[in-house]
Design a protein around this nucleic acid. Structure first.
Length: 369
DNA sequence: AAAGCGGGGTA
DNA sequence: TACCCAGCTTT
C-alpha cells in the first residue's frame, strides 16, 4: 500500500518541515511519564490552547501521581471545571490510584499495561509509549488521520471501524522507528498547523508533489466522516434557594450530561415557557425541601442558552428567597451549603456563568459580610 | 456498530 | 451554523 520510497519521502519531508516549524509546548521533551499522561488526557478532543492552562494548574496542584491519587474527587472535578468531557477527570483519578497502589507509583512502561489504564485508548497509549519510553507505536488522532487520508487519497470514513483499522495500519507503516516519539509529535504538529481541516497550506506544502488529494484536487473532500450529529433542545429550570447564607445543591449522578458535577435543584420541561408557580405546585421529589408558606420572594434570571455538541440547553434560574429550608426532607444527593463554599464544587459552564455574572443580587449582602 | 459525552475556536 | 479539536467508554 505504501512503498519504501513514499515512506522515506514522507518521513524526510516531515522532518524538514518540523525543523523549520517549531511548536514549543509545555509537555514536549517532558521525561516524566506522569506529566505526559496528564497532558494527553487533558488534550483528548481538546484544543491545545484550551487545555494549556488546565495542564499548568493540574501540574501545580498535583506534581506527582501520589498527590493526585490522594486528592478528594471534588477537588479534581473542580479543577477540571469548564474543560468538558468530565468522565476524563474521574478516570484520571482512578488511574492515579491504580498507578500509586498497584504499580507502587512507577508508571507502567509497556503498551499493553498503559492501554489497560482507565481513560487510555489506542491513541493515548501510543502517545505515552512513544513519548515517555521511545516505543514504536504510531499515534492516530484527528490530525494524523486527516494528513494520511489526504496524502494517500483515501476516502474510507475515518470514524468507521474499518477506517480506524486502516489508518492505524498505515500510520504504523509510516512510523519512523528511529525516533517514534519525535516522529509522532512532528506528524501531529504538521496536521495541526499546516494540513488543517479548512484551507490547508497546500501551496507551500513539502508533501505536495506526492499528495494524492492535492493531485486530484480533493483536499477539501478529505477526510471523510460518516458521523452526523442530531441536536436536541432541553429546557432547564434551576431553583436557587436562599435561606440566610445557605443554599442547596445536588450532584448529578444519572446517565446524562454533566455527570458528577453539581447543580441547583432542577426541573426539566418540554417547553420553553412556564408559570413558575405552577412548577412549584408540582409534587416533585426534587422539591421536597420546599414549602409554599416559607417563600419570601422569587426573582428570575435568564433564560440563558448554552450550545453543546449534541444539545442546546436553555436554562432559567429562579431565585427563591425562603424563611427556611427543610433540611430533614432533602432528597438523595442534595447538600445544604453556605453560599461562600460554592467554589469548592464543580459546576457546568452555564451555572458558572450564572454564579459569576447574575447572582450578585441574591447573595450580595452575604458576600459583603 | 452506534451512541453519548463539553466547551470553545473558526469560517 | 457546521465542523472540529493530541478520543474513550458504554450500550
Amino acid at each position: 500500500m505504501v512503498s519504501k520510497d513514499i515512506k522515506s519521502f514522507f518521513v524526510q519531508r516531515l522532518n524538514d518541515w518540523a525543523a523549520a516549524n517549531k511548536r514549543p509546548l509545555p509537555w514536549k521533551n517532558e521525561p516524566d511519564p506522569y506529566l505526559i499522561w496528564l497532558s494527553e488526557i487533558i488534550l483528548q478532543q481538546t484544543r491545545v490552547a484550551q487545555g494549556m492552562p488546565y495542564y499548568e494548574a493540574f501540574k501545580a496542584h498535583f506534581p506527582n501521581v501520589q498527590v493526585l491519587a490522594a486528592a478528594p474527587e471534588d477537588e479534581i472535578m473542580r479543577l477540571w471545571q469548564g474543560l468538558g468531557y468530565y468522565s476524563r477527570a474521574r478516570n484520571l483519578h482512578q488511574t492515579a490510584k491504580t498507578i500509586a497502589i498497584q504499580y507502587q507509583g512507577k508508571f507502567p512502561d509497556t503498551y499493553e499495561e498503559i492501554r489497560a489504564l482507565k481513560g487510555v485508548g489506542p491513541y493515548t497509549a501510543a502517545a505515552i509509549a512513544s513519548f515517555a519510553f521511545g516505543l514504536p507505536y504510531a499515534v492516530v488522532d484527528g490530525n494524523v488521520s486527516r494528513v494520511l487520508s489526504r496524502f494517500l487519497g483515501i476516502d474510507t470514513p475515518i470514524d468507521s471501524t474499518i477506517g480506524k483499522k486502516l489508518f492505524q495500519d498505515l500510520a504504523d507503516t509510516l512510523l519512523d522507528r528511529n525516533d517514534p516519539g519525535k516522529y509522532n509529535q512532528q506528524l501531529m504538529d504538521f496536521g495541526a498547523v499546516h494540513c488543517t481541516p479548512q484551507q490547508p497550506l497546500c501551496p507551500q506544502c513539502p508533501l505536495q508533489s506526492e499528495c494524492i488529494a492535492f493531485r486530484q484536487k480533493k483536499t477539501a473532500q478529505l477526510p471523510v466522516k460518516n458521523k452526523k450529529i442530531t441536536k436536541t433542545k432541553r429546557y432547564f429550570h434551576y431553583l436557587v434557594p436562599k435561606f440566610d447564607s445557605q443554599t442547596l445543591i445536588r450532584k448529578r449522578t444519572q446517565q446524562d450530561i454533566w455527570k458528577h458535577l453539581y447543580e441547583f435543584p432542577l426541573i426539566e420541561t418540554e417547553q420553553a415557557n412556564l408559570d413558575i408557580h405552577d412548577l412549584l405546585a408540582q409534587n416533585h421529589t426534587t422539591l421536597d425541601w420546599w414549602k409554599p408558606e416559607q417563600l419570601i420572594e422569587i426573582r428570575q434570571t435568564g433564560p440563558h442558552k448554552q450550545q453543546l455538541t449534541h444539545q442546546t440547553i436553555i436554562a432559567t434560574f429562579w431565585e427563591l428567597e425562603l424563611q427556611q429550608i427543610e433540611q430533614n426532607q432533602l432528597p438523595d444527593q442534595f447538600v445544604c451549603i453556605n453560599w461562600k463554599n460554592l467554589d469548592k464544587f464543580a459546576f457546568p459552564r452555564i451555572i458558572d456563568w450564572y454564579l459569576k455574572d447574575n447572582s450578585l443580587n441574591l447573595f450580595s449582602q452575604v458576600q459583603q459580610n
